[in-house]
Design a protein around this nucleic acid. Structure first.
Lengths: 173, 173
DNA sequence: CGACACTAGTTCGGTCACCGAACTCGGTGC
DNA sequence: GCACCGAGTTCGGTGACCGAACTAGTGTCG
């Protein structure tokens, strides 16, 4: 266990949650999974994370039921996918991203989130600005914004994310 | 800077946000600040965090504009309080807490959040279940729930949190 | 005014997580 | 069989975190 025991012992659900997703890199891995990244090597490439650390994190996430390691039929190697429990982290991931956008994205946000059905922007309460309904992750797509840097399109994964992309859809193999 | 450079260079607002609130302990410190903890010693007591680490984290939070160190008139020592920017993290803190409640609180959540005006429970979208309106942090109070453990009431701070308490109101001195 | 107490924060040595690079291992294609 | 490729492990060095002890500044009480 990477986080100190006290975390769990506090009788606080935030502490318990942080035990699982509060370690370095973990939320970025989950974000990438929302973006459609599924393979070990793609995580390494896109996040530039040490392989050993990624290996650890994925193991923990699988152990804790946030992701599953599944081998698609006809495929040689396994994919990592978010479970229902993992997908329920979308409000948190979106919320933190939003907070970062608001306070640090001087050139505007690097990416927007849109409602697939009508193209409406999704606001901080996960509501579509066009139809004013709450939008689920599955009905959300990412589109590049004005603040998108050159840096961020490093490698194949970065390239793939430069065009609009529905969340959770696997990246082109 | 404690987090790796890549975090910032990814052109991703989540990464940028995690640079600031993603380190170990940081979100727990912020949670305690929402609960009304304001003094160095109270953080140490309630979180059981090494003093050196707390010192570092508070310094970073102040440097980044999430908290301010202010000396109230007539008071000897300074308090740490959330800034507007810090208070905007409430949806994230609440969201993660909610997620933890849902998946790990076998005996029910250790604490509930209620709308001060009408006592309605606040749901995962920060909406009051009684009046169906979005509730701001300032109009929210914490009340102990069924899952609250003995452990968590260690010390004065834990005691103070055992009775309903409006968020951001300073704990009794 | 001097001794004591209390709070905030620093220092210190040991330990553990993280890091990048190199390596191993197993499956595929030729 | 043999080269290749992607996944994951191993390894030595470095930095963050840990608890405990220490310091410094302020309030208090005789």
């Amino acid at each position: 266990m990477a986080l100190p025991k006290q975390y769990a012992e506090q009788g606080c659900s935030l502490a318990r949650a942080l035990e699982i997703v509060g370690e370095r890199w973990t939320l970025l891995i989950i974000r990438d999974a929302f973006y459609g990244v599924r393979r070990f090597g793609d995580f390494v490439e896109h996040l530039d994370i040490p392989r050993a650390v990624l290996s650890d994190r994925l193991k923990d996430l699988v152990d804790n039921g946030v992701m599953v390691k599944a081998t698609a039929p006809g495929r040689a190697r396994a994919d990592y996918e978010l479970t229902e429990m993992g997908r329920e982290l979308w409000p948190v991931v979106h919320g933190l991203t939003q907070w970062g956008d608001e306070h640090f994205a001087s050139k505007g946000p690097p990416r927007f989130f849109e409602h697939v059905a009508d193209g409406g922007r999704i606001d901080s309460e996960l509501t579509c600005e066009t139809c004013h309904r709450r939008v689920e992750v599955e009905d959300t797509r990412v589109v590049p914004g004005p603040g998108l840097s050159k840096r961020s399109s490093r490698g194949m994964v970065g390239e793939a994310l430069k065009s609009p992309h529905r969340l959770l859809d696997p990246l082109p193999v």
